[in-house]
Amino acid sequence: MTDSLILRAWQSKDAAQLPDLLAEDATFSSPVADYHGRARAAHLLATIATVLDSVHQTRQWSDGQQRMFAFTARFGDQELQGVLREELAETGSLTHVTLFLRPYRALRAAIAEMTRRLEDSPPPPAA
């Protein structure tokens, strides 16, 4: 099974590697908004790593330069199920990462926590 580059970073809580995984013009599509550019995308993905616990990849699908990964994670005492789509450039860097999470109640609580953390550490301005 191929591991997700992003899920691996979330599992290890090692966000330092995230910028190196992303193309300069990468986009991260969260359940709330799209974030364009390596620095903004990496910042959001790193913040998510601080919010989610017990990230565990459960399945993967691949079709050329697109890969999808099903996973479970915890936020507090709530379990989340998610799908992460990673689109890769020919060079292997990630050009677009899309995150889908459910159920809504747990997602809403995680979004509220992300909002608090982003107020303390806002993403860099859009280029």
Results as ranks from 00 to 15, higher is better:
Asp53Pro: 00
Ile111Val: 14
Gln60Arg: 12
Ala112Lys: 07
Ala73Pro: 02
His43Asn: 04
Thr72Lys: 09
Ala70Arg: 08
Gln57Asp: 04
Pro103Val: 00
Glu90Cys: 06
Arg105Ile: 11
Ser54Glu: 15
Val97Met: 05
Gln57His: 01
Glu24Arg: 12
Ala49Asn: 02
Phe75Pro: 00
Thr115Phe: 14
Gln60Tyr: 11
Ala89Thr: 10
Ala70Ser: 12
Arg102His: 10
Arg116Lys: 10
Glu86Asn: 05
Thr115Ser: 14
Gly92Leu: 05
Arg38Asn: 07
Ala33Glu: 15
Leu45Phe: 05
Leu21Gln: 06
Val32Gln: 09
Trp61Ile: 08
Arg102Lys: 11
Leu45Thr: 06
Val97Thr: 05
Thr72Phe: 01
Gln66Gly: 07
Asp53Ala: 10
Pro19Thr: 08
Pro103Tyr: 03
Gln78Gly: 02
Leu107Gly: 02
Arg102Asn: 10
Glu24Tyr: 11
Ile48Gln: 06
Ile48Leu: 12
Asp25Glu: 13
Ala23Asn: 06
Ala109Pro: 04
Met114Ile: 10
Glu79Ser: 15
Glu79Ala: 15
Tyr104Ile: 06
Val51Ser: 04
Gly64Ala: 02
Ala23Phe: 10
Ala73Met: 01
Glu87Val: 14
Thr72Gly: 13
Arg38Lys: 08
Gln57Glu: 06
Thr47Met: 13
Ala49Asp: 01
Arg38Leu: 01
Leu99Lys: 00
Ile48Tyr: 12
Gln66Thr: 14
